[in-house]
Every structure is written in C-alpha cells, then in structure tokens.
C-alpha cells in the first residue's frame, strides 16, 4: 500500500508540478466551454424556429438535456482523444528514457502496483476534468428558462450519468495510452501512437454506422462513443458498463505484461 501511494504521489507531483497537466486541463476546459456555447447558439436557433411554428409538440422535442448537455459531453469525449495521449505518453516511456524504470523493476513492488498507481493518477486528473463539466448543467439549471410549462428542468441523473460516462471513456483511453507508453522508450512515439489508435477507434464507430449487417454492428460496438452515447441519453446499460470495465482492465493487464517484458528486453 505504501508503494502504491508513493508511486501515486510521485505521479501526481510530476503531473501537476509541470505545466503540462495545467495546459491540458485549461485547453480541455476552454474548448469544452467554446463548444457548449456553440451548441447553445444552435439550440436557441432551433428553439426560435420551433416557437415560430408554435407547435408545443415540436418544442417538447427540443430537450436540452440531450441536445445541449449530451452534445457537450460527446464533444468532451472527443477532446479527451487528444488530451489523454499528452498525459499518458510520459508515464512509462519517460521512465525508460530516464533510466528510472530499471529502479522500479528492481524495487520490491509488483508491476500491477506500478501500473495501477499510474492509472489512478490519471483517473484523478480525469476526475478533475470531468468535474469541470458539471458547470454546464449547473449553468442551465440556474439560468435556463422553461419555454414550455413544466419543461426546462435539468435532468441531473442524466447529466451525472453522462459525465460518469465521459470519465469511464477517458479512463479507457488512459489505459490504452498507458499500455502504449509501456511498449516504447519514446514519449513522443507513445503520444502519437495513442492518438492514432484513439482516432481510429473514433472513426470505427462512424464507419460502423455506414456498414450494414453484423460487420457494422461489431464496428459500432468497438467504438467507445457508441457506449457513451447511451449514457449521455440517460440510459445505464450493463453491457456498456462491462465494456468500459473489461476494456480498461484488459488494457491495464497489457501494460503490466509490457512492463514485465522490459526485464527480457
């Protein structure tokens, strides 16, 4: 336990003592805010059009839980594709480059503890990033006005489930980045390969929608966004939870195997 907390503390110091995490967090917050604002403008235009028609049924379809909060959370997930590799690249690749990985390998600590502590440090970063997403439902809750009687209330259950989904997606990305970082001594290569793999997973989801039959379904299932989308719509499905949990654990196991393989390199 001391080794776990020692590695975790060092990782947090290394992450937050350098500008990297702050820049990544700042960029994430700024771009998410910008995208939320654009979504808000788009939503207002749709709302005005619907009001011009004057049909309450159409107005009722304009659910800002889905259209505003949901869309912002899906954008946030896309941003993590670019933020996470910047953070994961240094986790093990940099240790190899500095020569400190040998010291970890020689310490009386299991590789599962090393990899686990590093993943938890990323989870804490992601928790901070996801906490920033609470601003949007809070803003809508405080400032939003109901257009239709009884409407306009933020569904906090849906919002929190969506944010938890973004966190789970980020953690899955982090586990992938960690595994890639364990396979190379070059942090830059680790960042590039992780980003390419994550972009690939993103496109797989899009490609799946265009492919008919079982092939398309498999491609869609592979994409994290498919599983996140249900969460941001307020649907908690066991299959989606298992996808994120099993995916993260499997990638963490790959990272452990790759760290152990450094002894034979």
């Amino acid at each position: 336990m001391r080794a776990f907390s020692g590695i975790l503390k060092r990782e947090l110091l290394a992450t937050f003592a350098t500008p990297l995490a702050w820049v990544a967090l700042g960029a994430f917050a700024l771009v998410t805010a910008l995208l939320f604002w654009l979504e808000l403008l788009g939503f207002e235009v749709q709302q005005q059009r619907a009001m011009a028609v004057g049909d309450p049924a159409i107005l009722a379809l304009l659910d800002f839980n889905d259209l505003l909060i949901g869309s912002t959370l899906l954008h946030a997930q896309v941003l993590l594709i670019f933020v996470v590799p910047v953070l994961t690249m240094r986790l093990i690749a940099e240790e190899q480059q500095r020569g400190t990985l040998d010291f970890l390998l020689a310490a009386p600590v299991r590789s599962t503890v090393v990899v686990g502590a590093k993943l938890v440090s990323l989870a804490l970063f992601l928790a901070v990033a996801c906490a920033l997403l609470l601003v949007y439902p809070a803003l809508l809750s405080l400032l939003g006005r109901a257009v239709v009687e009884g409407d306009g209330v933020v569904d906090w259950g849906q919002a929190l489930l969506g944010i938890a989904g973004v966190f789970a997606t980020g953690l899955l990305y982090a586990a992938l980045g960690l595994a890639v970082s364990a396979g190379t001594a070059s942090p830059a290569a680790a960042a590039l390969v992780t980003a390419l793999l994550l972009v690939g997973l993103w496109f797989v989801g899009g490609a799946g929608a265009g492919v008919p039959g079982a092939g398309g379904a498999v491609l869609s299932w592979l994409a994290p966004a498919t599983h996140l989308e249900r969460g941001v719509r307020g649907v908690l499905a066991l299959g989606d939870v298992l996808y994120f949990v099993v995916g993260t654990v499997a990638l963490e196991a790959v990272a452990v195997v790759l760290v152990e393989s450094r002894r034979r390199a």
């Binding site: 020692g6 590695i7 040998d102």
Partner: peptide
C-alpha cells in the same frame, strides 16, 4: 545504478521518501 535513477522534478527529500515508500517503509 551507473546513472542515479532520479526524477528531476522531485526534491531530494521527495525522492528519498519515494524510494522509502517503494520498500514499504
């Protein structure tokens, strides 16, 4: 080791605390 395995961003005290924690101390 030949090149002391130190993390450049840590202080001497933090580095030694890290090494001690790795040994469960």
């Amino acid at each position: 080791p030949e090149t002391p395995p130190l993390h450049p961003e840590l202080t001497v005290e933090e580095q030694l605390a890290f090494a001690a924690s790795l040994r469960g101390l």
